[in-house]
């Protein structure tokens, strides 16, 4: 099977965040469109807590974070803005402490603290945090399990071999 380009898709729309919490903040992207090291550090720290099979595998985690970032770039402008706002939330010193509950640098944040953040966001009565959780977790999960390399984790063997052969795929 062809190795497919990575892509797309989310259920993000964290538009409320972009409306409400757009502080002036450290730049998310450098002028070439690459995400700042602090954004990447946050994503590298959070991703293995969403996807346990990436735990203890920083290389695979970093590779997937690139996939995730490429995926965001295929979304509509309004969705991309929503993700930018979400990333602000992760890296701005004030929101990082008081909304994410992370007092250290992301690089050294303990898995327990990050897990606590995810659970709190999911279970919060504050719709904004539910929405941030949904955006982050759902896009991550879809991009990860949607790729053929991960299908086996879901015991899905893809289109049956004889079908692929008959169709020349």
């Amino acid at each position: 099977m062809n190795r497919r380009r990575f892509l797309l898709w989310s259920s993000a729309s964290v538009t409320v965040i972009s409306g409400g919490l757009y502080w002036s903040s450290p730049a998310l992207q450098d002028p070439t469109g690459r995400y700042s090291t602090s954004t990447l550090a946050a994503l590298n720290a959070i991703t293995p807590l969403i996807l346990p099979s990436l735990r203890n595998d920083p290389q695979a985690t970093q590779a997937f974070v690139q996939v995730f970032i490429e995926g965001i770039k295929t979304l509509s402008a309004s969705q991309q803005k929503a993700f930018d706002a979400l990333f602000q939330l992760l890296i701005h010193p004030a929101s990082k402490r008081f909304i994410c509950g992370i007092w250290s640098d992301w690089e050294v944040a303990s898995p327990e603290t990050i897990e606590r953040m995810l659970s709190r966001w999911r279970n919060s009565r504050w719709a904004l945090l539910n929405q941030a959780y949904n955006g982050l977790v759902q896009l991550t999960a879809a991009l990860y399990y949607g790729h053929p390399n991960q299908w086996a984790l879901a015991h899905y063997s893809g289109p049956p071999a004889q079908v692929r052969a008959a169709l020349g795929r």
């Binding site: 969403i50 977790v137 991550t140 879901a154």
Partner: peptide, 25 residues
Amino acid sequence: IHPALAAQMLGVHGDTLQAYMKRLP
């Protein structure tokens, strides 16, 4: 129910997500 849509719709993370995805079939 294919893997990406399932993973997204489950709306969970971590071990819970992994456990559900293992049972996808």
